[in-house]
């Protein structure tokens, strides 16, 4: 094989791309979650927030483009590494015992595709084919009142939690942030961010199911 010539051709470069694109997506996810907190303030707040966003097309489309690009880079790097890593093992071990791998790390190749499907569903559900265009609050509450739909969101967000936990922790390492004095913070930060987003996001369908948020 020819030696690689550019950063993105190397396995490390691909991981750097995954880390940077992942951080962009995590950043968006945080903003997305904070915006959604409007749900607890009632229909006016929520719909008003949505309207305000819609009134700023450069922001919306700018964000969408950046996200699309990040997601595309994230997925294509992941696929390329996945194919490469499978090939690198060759034959499988009869017995194999993990010593350091945690659940989140082990399931990245599962939580990733689940998340992708979830995102597609989520976009179709609320953005592309909403039941009541323009009525964000109603769409959300009506949707989550259906236990089946709520459970899709719950599963999707649990997958999100695991994925970004390992993702954030891993991004520190990939981007070269590893120092014994600060390493415990890497894990703490990953737990804090992923837990905050996951618990917050899960609170929406649960609050609706529990009847705390109603139409």
């Amino acid at each position: 094989m020819q030696r690689a010539l550019t950063l993105q051709q190397t396995t490390i470069g691909k991981k750097v791309i995954m880390a940077l694109s992942g951080l962009i997506i995590v950043g968006f996810t945080i903003g997305h979650f904070l915006g959604n907190l409007n749900l607890y303030l009632g229909p006016e707040a929520m719909d008003g927030y949505a309207e305000k966003l819609q009134s700023l097309p450069p922001l919306v489309w700018g964000t969408r483009l950046v996200l699309l690009f990040a997601l595309g880079a994230h997925i294509s790097s992941a696929l390329s590494l996945w194919a490469r890593n499978r090939q690198a093992r060759g034959s499988r071990y009869q017995k194999r015992k993990d010593l350091a791998t945690d659940y989140a790390a082990r399931t990245m190749y599962w939580s990733g595709p689940i998340l992708l499907l979830f995102i597609i569903y989520h976009l179709l559900h609320f953005t592309i084919l909403p039941a009541h265009p323009g009525e964000v609050y109603r769409n959300v509450v009506e949707g989550f009142q259906d236990p089946l739909i709520a459970s899709v969101y719950i599963v999707g967000n649990v997958a999100l939690g695991f994925h970004i936990f390992h993702g954030i922790y891993s991004a520190f390492q990939t981007l070269g942030a590893n120092h014994p004095r600060y390493n415990s913070y890497r894990r703490d930060a990953a737990i804090a961010i992923s837990a905050a987003i996951t618990i917050g996001n899960l609170s929406f369908p649960i609050a609706v199911l529990a009847g705390i948020v109603t139409l």
Binding site: R3, A4, T10, T11, R84, T174
Partner: peptide, 24 residues
């Protein structure tokens, strides 16, 4: 650059930060 490029050219996989190597 040269060593990483060679590492890749040998067909080894990429690091996914599991930490198994350090343990072993």
């Amino acid at each position: 650059r040269q060593m990483v490029a060679q590492m890749d050219a040998e067909g080894f996989g990429g690091c996914t930060n599991h930490g198994e190597c350090e343990e072993a």
